[in-house]
Simulated scan of single mutants.
Amino acid sequence: MLLLPPIPQLSEFSWERFSQQWNSLTSQTKKIADGAGQGEEFKALEQQVRQCVLSRDITQLKNTLLKRKGVRVLTQLWIDKEDVRKGSLNEETIDYIQAKHPKLGMSSLMNLISLVYRYFDALVDGNIFNRLTQWLNQQIEQRLKDRKNTSDTILSVLNQAKWLFDLTAPKALVNLAKQNHLDLSEQLKKLRLNELPQGRFLDICHAQYYLDTLKEIPVGEQHDVLHELLKHDVATMPFEEGKRIGHIALEIIIDRSAGAPSEIWQNFVLNLAGDPRIANTATNYRQ
């Protein structure tokens, strides 16, 4: 189950300054991405690294990871290729890279940040999520020590708001939006978090916001959140305990109706869950 306890100390952050710093972060990220070598040599190295992982040639993989470019390629493949991620994103590989490269190149560091936000709670198997975030915090702190002026960099932003690397961050952002009387999209935009790579982090933020809103709207009345929850990509999004967002939404509607639902809410339930009289072999019934 994804536990989302309240995050303390949110009021200590200067959100206006944080927004300015995150804007700088996204600009720098784009420059790094645009400048990253994607020529024939880079693509050949990608194929080599992927083959090493798939064939479990650990010796050759370690030899490749002795070079900074090898680390950059592997961290990019962790983002792009599920087979490489499953085959090599483990504590042994992290330990080896940390030992050989006490200070990561900026491209590799940015890859790891993107990896965490894109897959987020999908990385909780074993201790990988904790290892990645600990690694990132260590790398960020190390780089900050080496710089005289860090007030407007990606590293200083993430160093100030370490809770953004916590599994509770989506809940914290939803609470912050409520505190500021903002729509979630407005809050994300204010913090430049809407410019993060699309993935589980942003999905969970929106899902948490929709479900919290569903708990608070007047019983039986129409609301924009009902329309959002009927979208297939939203309703079928995994949430917690093997349930999807649609399951949680139905539970909330049924619990709050306290008897016969209004026509609006009844239509919502039928549109989301489908006709209960359909065959139990139907895909929608099984979902």
Rank of each mutant, 00 (worst) to 15 (best):
residue 7 I to S: 12
residue 12 E to C: 15
residue 13 F to T: 04
residue 14 S to T: 03
residue 14 S to L: 07
residue 16 E to Y: 10
residue 17 R to P: 00
residue 17 R to C: 06
residue 18 F to D: 05
residue 19 S to L: 11
residue 24 S to P: 09
residue 25 L to M: 14
residue 37 G to A: 11
residue 37 G to Y: 08
residue 38 Q to L: 10
residue 39 G to C: 06
residue 41 E to W: 12
residue 41 E to H: 12
residue 43 K to Q: 15
residue 43 K to R: 15
residue 44 A to T: 15
residue 45 L to N: 02
residue 47 Q to G: 08
residue 48 Q to N: 07
residue 49 V to S: 01
residue 50 R to V: 04
residue 52 C to A: 06
residue 52 C to V: 01
residue 54 L to V: 13
residue 57 D to I: 04
residue 60 Q to N: 10
residue 64 T to N: 02
residue 65 L to E: 02
residue 67 K to D: 11
residue 68 R to N: 04
residue 70 G to M: 12
residue 70 G to C: 09
residue 70 G to I: 10
residue 76 Q to D: 03
residue 76 Q to M: 02
residue 78 W to L: 08
residue 80 D to H: 15
residue 81 K to S: 12
residue 83 D to A: 12
residue 84 V to G: 07
residue 85 R to V: 04
residue 85 R to Q: 09
residue 86 K to T: 10
residue 87 G to K: 04
residue 87 G to N: 00
residue 91 E to K: 14
residue 94 I to Y: 05
residue 96 Y to P: 03
residue 100 K to S: 10
residue 102 P to C: 00
residue 104 L to N: 01
residue 105 G to S: 05
residue 106 M to E: 08
residue 108 S to K: 05
residue 113 I to D: 02
residue 115 L to Y: 00
residue 115 L to N: 00
residue 116 V to T: 09
residue 117 Y to A: 09
residue 119 Y to D: 04
residue 119 Y to K: 07
residue 119 Y to W: 03
residue 119 Y to G: 03
residue 119 Y to S: 02
residue 124 V to Q: 14
residue 126 G to N: 01
residue 126 G to A: 03
residue 131 R to I: 00
residue 132 L to G: 03
residue 132 L to N: 06
residue 133 T to F: 05
residue 138 Q to Y: 11
residue 139 Q to I: 06
residue 140 I to P: 00
residue 143 R to S: 02
residue 156 S to Y: 12
residue 160 Q to A: 06
residue 162 K to D: 00
residue 165 F to V: 00
residue 168 T to S: 12
residue 169 A to W: 00
residue 170 P to F: 03
residue 171 K to G: 14
residue 173 L to C: 10
residue 173 L to P: 05
residue 174 V to H: 03
residue 177 A to I: 09
residue 179 Q to K: 13
residue 180 N to T: 11
residue 190 K to E: 09
residue 191 L to V: 13
residue 194 N to I: 02
residue 198 Q to T: 12
residue 208 Q to N: 09
residue 213 T to F: 02
residue 216 E to V: 11
residue 220 G to Y: 01
residue 220 G to W: 01
residue 223 H to Y: 11
residue 223 H to M: 12
residue 235 A to L: 02
residue 235 A to W: 03
residue 235 A to G: 07
residue 236 T to C: 11
residue 240 E to N: 14
residue 242 G to E: 06
residue 247 H to P: 06
residue 250 L to I: 15
residue 250 L to F: 15
residue 251 E to L: 10
residue 251 E to W: 14
residue 254 I to A: 12
residue 257 S to Q: 11
residue 257 S to L: 09
residue 259 G to L: 03
residue 260 A to I: 14
residue 261 P to W: 04
residue 263 E to V: 15
residue 266 Q to N: 15
residue 268 F to Y: 08
residue 270 L to F: 13
residue 270 L to T: 13
residue 273 A to P: 02
residue 273 A to T: 06
residue 273 A to F: 03
residue 273 A to N: 10
residue 283 T to E: 14
residue 284 N to G: 07
residue 285 Y to W: 15
residue 286 R to A: 05
